[in-house]
Computed example of a mutant assay.
Amino acid sequence: MADVTTPAATRPHEKYDRLIAVARKHPPTAAAVCHPCDAVSLESAVEAAKFGLMKPILVGPPARVRDVAQKGGLDISAFELVESAHSHDSAAKAVELIRAGRAEALMKGSLHTDELMGAAVSRDKGIRTGRRISHCFVMDVPGHPDALIISDAAVNIAPTLEDKVDIVQNAIDLAHALGSAEVRVAILSAMETVNPKVSSTIEAAALCKMADRGQITGAVLDGPLALDNAISPDAAAIKHIVSPVAGRANVLIVPDLEAGNMLAKSLSFLAGADAAGIVLGTRVPIILTSRADSLLTRLASCAVAVLVAAARRAQEMALAKSAV
């Protein structure tokens, strides 16, 4: 693995370097690692612990986990190992660790995302909040000055306007947790004008007005915006779009999952971007990594979870002080 502490000038993904460096300033976050029964997921937990990002609690069949560790030369002797019978049992027990207050993050191992999320969203035994659950990619695009948050490209298939309010707010809160001084949200569509025949343009305009009325907070919003005039100052200038967001967006809200998935994968496979993934709207951040992710990307996903958990602790402390 390349050294993620290498100076930014010699690395193509310096934004992830900075993200990991900031996360390492916080104490390691206790994380329930659900069913780490393959080399990639177990390595992710081990490396995150080595970097001081996480304190893993492994949840899985002990014989399988130890066999993977032995074959991969991974030392898990310092980690707690919670026994489970199979992947569904792993998901239930990992979520229970969250409910018991023993972990502040949930990390996907070698089980299907649906299994993990099914346990997380269970109405009786899950970790729901009042917010709509949504996914964010934090993308490190080579040559682009800022990390880009893209939502939602993995959870909400065809979100309603009501869903999008929470999707936007989750993304804004994430941007603040990552240390963004100014959060600039572009609500994307295929065009930058409101067209009654294109519902995403109408919803974009409504979301911006909701932000004006304080129904969405913590950021400046603009939309509808096409992708080019959301991220390119030149494209925005050509279209004569005068806006604090146009050409400078650091959060991109897509119309639906299909658009978001294609956007994220286009950046990954055509522009060489890395995509750290996190699920928000639950009691704790959920780290969703892919077996195809580089180790740096998996560590970046862990770093995002660390910063989200730290922001939530700070918020809870502030609320506790105000209640006294």
Rank of each mutant, 00 (worst) to 15 (best):
K265L: 01
L267M: 14
D38T: 07
M117W: 04
A21E: 15
P28F: 04
F51A: 01
A48F: 09
L161T: 15
P145I: 04
D124L: 13
G60F: 08
I57F: 13
P233V: 03
H26D: 12
P255S: 05
R123H: 13
G130L: 04
G101E: 08
K71F: 05
P196K: 02
V59H: 05
A271I: 00
A219R: 06
D212T: 11
L227N: 05
A292R: 01
G130T: 00
F51E: 09
P233I: 08
M107R: 00
Q169I: 10
L42P: 04
A9R: 12
A171R: 02
A32Q: 01
D222M: 01
K15N: 12
A45D: 02
T113C: 08
S294E: 09
S243H: 03
G247E: 05
A63N: 11
A45M: 04
V95Y: 05
L53I: 09
A147S: 15
F137N: 14
K25M: 14
P233F: 04
I167W: 01
A45Y: 00
A235N: 05
K164W: 06
G101C: 10
I253P: 11
S290G: 07
L53S: 06
V251Q: 10
G130D: 03
D17N: 13
A21H: 05
E43R: 14
P244V: 09
S294A: 12
A226D: 14
S322M: 15
V168A: 13
I150S: 07
A32L: 07
V68G: 11
I98L: 13
C136R: 02
K197M: 12
K93C: 10
A323K: 15
L74A: 01
E316T: 15
V121Q: 10
D89Y: 12
S200Q: 06
A236P: 09
L116H: 06
A204E: 03
